[in-house]
Design a protein around this nucleic acid. Structure first.
Lengths: 126, 126
DNA sequence: TTCATTTGTTCACGATTCCTGAACTATTGA
DNA sequence: TCAATAGTTCAGGAATCGTGAACAAATGAA
């Protein structure tokens, strides 16, 4: 198992942050971690919005969040503990994460709680 | 040529906005339009960051910006005039676009002006 | 120690999406 | 009517995504 890669904060890009958070599963994961004061293991997100996520898929999502600088992951015993890098990102891009999470909160408040079908934004609606 | 689709503002999603702006070419286009008071034709962006963009590719980029609610396009004679929908989006997701454009300004200020190679965030660096 | 369990990663491959040259549409002006 | 201009649409190869299967690492029990 190769060591986990965490980019230096000055190598974190806006495109990377937006890309990582443009997926409904990943933004749910990120929001979940951000809302906690403590760290969370990956296994905490085996179901997201009432939908099961295969663990290999989950692992890839965490990798994308990690390699785009949004979270820090550290092995602790048998599990991986994840925390956000929000303070660093806030210093680099003030207000960015807050605006994104706030927009998400607005959107999920508007939608009927029935949980959106986790459709990727890449697939055009219509 | 089928009529252009513009989503209603209440159908615009955060995921869609983040996805559309997670591409370096698209965010450059959007920032270009947003920085002008007037509308701009697509052909204004046949080169972005000193790099030529094929016009079919450019057309797809505009389509993604349009169908995710970021811009409004209207035919005017032989060309397509584009303007941002920033006021509507600001009402729906306050502060979001400002934070993103601000973060981009910070990033491009930090980087040597040599122009980043327009690498998509999807491709892992390293 | 050895073995089973748990948690997550890596690999491989089919499905999806992206990029772009070629062909096409629509408008304008000569 | 014809040429030129500005974009769109289509098709196919390239790249990326999603996921089952196999693997790796740590723990605890026997």
């Amino acid at each position: 198992m190769r060591p986990l890669f965490h980019p230096a904060i000055e190598d974190v890009t806006v495109e990377g942050i937006l890309y990582a958070l443009s997926d409904p599963v990943r933004v749910a994961i990120y929001a979940g971690i951000a809302s906690q004061k403590c760290t969370l293991p990956c296994s905490n997100f085996l179901t997201v919005a009432e939908q099961a996520i295969p663990k290999s898929t989950l692992s890839q999502h965490f990798k994308i969040l990690r390699e785009n600088g949004l979270i820090h992951s550290e092995r602790h015993g048998v599990e991986m503990l994840n925390r956000t890098r929000c303070e660093e990102i806030e210093r680099r891009f003030p207000g960015l994460l807050r605006a994104i999470l706030n927009a998400h909160a607005i959107q999920s408040k508007q939608k009927p709680g029935k949980a959106s079908p986790l459709r990727s934004a890449r697939r055009t609606a219509r």
